[in-house]
Write a protein that binds this DNA or RNA. Sequence first.
DNA 1: CAATGTGAACCTATTCACAGCG
DNA 2: CGCTGTGAATAGGTTCACATTG
Lengths: 274, 274
Amino acid sequence: MATGRTHRPATRSRGIPEATVARLPLYLRALTALSERSVPTVSSEELATAAGVNSAKLRKDFSYLGSYGTRGVGYDVEYLVYQISRELGLTQDWPVVIVGIGNLGAALANYGGFASRGFRVAALIDADPAMAGKPVAGIPVQHTDELEKIITDNGVSIGVIATPAGAAQQVCERLVAAGVTSILNFAPTVLSVPDGVDVRKVDLSIELQILAFHEQRKAGEGAAAEAALSPAPAVVTAPVPDAGPGTDPEAGTGTGAAASRKGPDGDVPAVMPA
Amino acid sequence: MATGRTHRPATRSRGIPEATVARLPLYLRALTALSERSVPTVSSEELATAAGVNSAKLRKDFSYLGSYGTRGVGYDVEYLVYQISRELGLTQDWPVVIVGIGNLGAALANYGGFASRGFRVAALIDADPAMAGKPVAGIPVQHTDELEKIITDNGVSIGVIATPAGAAQQVCERLVAAGVTSILNFAPTVLSVPDGVDVRKVDLSIELQILAFHEQRKAGEGAAAEAALSPAPAVVTAPVPDAGPGTDPEAGTGTGAAASRKGPDGDVPAVMPA
DNA sequence: CAATGTGAACCTATTCACAGCG
DNA sequence: CGCTGTGAATAGGTTCACATTG
């Protein structure tokens, strides 16, 4: 793997754009809810609202699947549920293994939505011998030694990694070697995998940082507009002269801040460009 | 809400593209690792590999932040850590509340990466009175009744929702009303929020479905070999129970087509934990 | 001369707006 | 007439390739 091939073909996707694929589950959920309320049909407008997208996008998305609607009427809910399910491959059974049964792994094992849509937790695997045999969500935890056998015996092709970051790459390699070709990674690490293996990551820390970025912008923007509701005492703690809306990244020598918030090797008064 | 306002300005982002913002945390993590190993500088190539992207993209990303590299040499690790941290708003303290202390909420509360980068769990909130006072990750759980007071007193602007889907929207509204403007949603629901509030969602079920989609493609591609281990499940093609009171949408299209259109195996679980 | 920084080309995705159909 | 389905227009993101610079 020359340069960390963590991509997915993207072109392989039989015409359906990746962005569309990522929204199908959303539509499916909204449709399922309608189905449970025995609603027979929906317009693109209604469904789009329920799924949190706009109707043009939804119609375009559906157009990639084929013409499943009726002009002047809308879409047949049941039929669409089936079509999308089939498109997503949910009409078949997907045995899944979860590796790393800590707090998170246990939460995932217990997660209802997991089992609901074609996914089945085939096994829970953990490196701690003390966990072995202990049932979590009704499923006995098995030791990592069994990993390869479990994958093979159950024909597992989807693995979920919920181990500490340090163990993730190794676990990943074992999963892949045993035949897993899709991985959902909760460990805060970049996994490198051979071509043909899909990796999706879910990273709490990254999501929070993205929110913080936007949050910071809001704060600097309309002055104390927000202050109406939040007295915001703790927010302005910044040791840096904070540029506020900062149209320019003139960094005003934040060495102090940089050094103070980063741990061990602390302050290396970095190079100062212009 | 004309068209599901779940968006974020996207243009507000003072020039930095959203896609770039989403990668900054990745770079930051890789840089922090280098920093801990006391590596003084990195080239775009090295750093890109560590972050799992390609170097052109990384350089372009950094170019939006300003010119922080040295031609012929690379980037100063410490300096870059600081610049990215500042850009992301991590040089300040972000008190966060987690609402819904079930399996997942507890896992989040215990998650180390949480506290590490400027984020601090200010409070844990749950609707179950029995949980009140019980410490999770060393922090006593408080009852939902206290929500508004907690938000206000702590100047919380970021909230994490880890409740069941049914409670999410309501919790969301209370958080927003109390002053929260950024929400990380783990509940499998579309949240609708007023303008100016950011929502990011993390949805296990959606990620798995996306993986299943690609997995299915892989299988269908080479040949039909997978079946080796999957014992053909119950095959019931058309799920269409048709709740047809009123407009009967012509059975031919719906049922017939659905049933006859390629059906390796049917059975759509489609049960949603409402 | 190695590696950044960036214009330009390219590709992907979203939105518009309306023709076409039930 | 209402709503789908889609070409065309636009916006956003990625990759290329190279001039520029320490």
